[in-house]
Design a protein around this nucleic acid. Sequence first.
DNA 1: GTCTATATCATGATAGAC
DNA 2: GTCTATCATGATATAGAC
Lengths: 202, 202
Amino acid sequence: MVTDSNTEQKILDAAEEVFHQKGYDGARMQEIAEEAGINKGLLHYYFKTKDKLFEAIFSMALNRMVSKISAILDLDISLDQKIDLIVEQYMALFTRNPNLPRFVLNELNKNPDEFIARHFNGDIKRAFAGFAVSVQREIEKGTIQPIDPRHLLMNMISLIIFPFIGRPMIQVVFGIDNTEFKKLISERREHIKRFLNAALRP
Amino acid sequence: MVTDSNTEQKILDAAEEVFHQKGYDGARMQEIAEEAGINKGLLHYYFKTKDKLFEAIFSMALNRMVSKISAILDLDISLDQKIDLIVEQYMALFTRNPNLPRFVLNELNKNPDEFIARHFNGDIKRAFAGFAVSVQREIEKGTIQPIDPRHLLMNMISLIIFPFIGRPMIQVVFGIDNTEFKKLISERREHIKRFLNAALRP
DNA sequence: GTCTATATCATGATAGAC
DNA sequence: GTCTATCATGATATAGAC
């Protein structure tokens, strides 16, 4: 796909912005066109339908969500190091793309079967299986407390993702503005690592 | 709670079902009417606009999300007991209403200012302030490790909410069906309590 | 209160000039 | 490739009979 002009890229950037923020149902082709600095006619020239454009955006988004964790879980490093890497990389990813997790989780939920079948390869399932084994090994060595690896993985992801999905509510409850929220997020990197290590220590 | 089989209640039940599942943008008045066993004309007779109907549903949903935690944080009981109550009550609430957290967090995110101003009373802010004090007290007594009360509260909510928002992805990664997912959730009640206690112990 | 029919409008998509 | 103009559909909302 050797695309000539950069119009296609401008469209993809605009579509990502709008879809991530408003979801498939809330997004308007008109708004995407405006955001890209073109008109609807040209938008449909590049992507025949809203569905095809969405598909391109969603596919990239889902890939960005799962590729990192598959790779990290596969590494031959200690559990402690895996936690560090996952926290660092995903906090950074979601800081750059605050709407990414909500978008992916939402759209996945609307059409679970369709999307999952189309996009999920077996990588992440295999990576988790390997992770479960390495957790079991640490438990047997006595370096961490006994724990179901599924709950452990969910806990890590939960702690990382929630602030981005719950941001508006968080800012109200804590009475903080955008600047203070960013500070809270940056502190949270270290907090999550400490918290997980404390929970796991024998 | 014996549901009146009067028309207004049937509409509210149907609207809750559809709005919670598809959000404001994805919901169709036609579908709500069908779900309620009436037609669009009558639906508009009871609720003049889609906005008004949505407002009724969202208001109830947000209230169900925050009222419990405000009440629990206000109780004069130990931190340990508060954690127990929050985990028990919210896991039960979300088990009965699996789409509630996604719905509320999503819609809140789309119009943060508008909704927050209209619906949030100061209860939860005050409750959190009290919670922060009691956490500080436990830290000083040495019964728990030092921790930022904001992160602690976020951690509790994170661990509870995520499985419901991330359900489709979770089932794929762990390769489990609906029955096994329900079992995972029921185990998770105790897991979260143990995990939080382990992380907090001095 | 409840229904059918219809008005109004927004949006995805196409046609055709340049 | 890019634009303007237009179509076709579907959704909210209203009017009016019963």
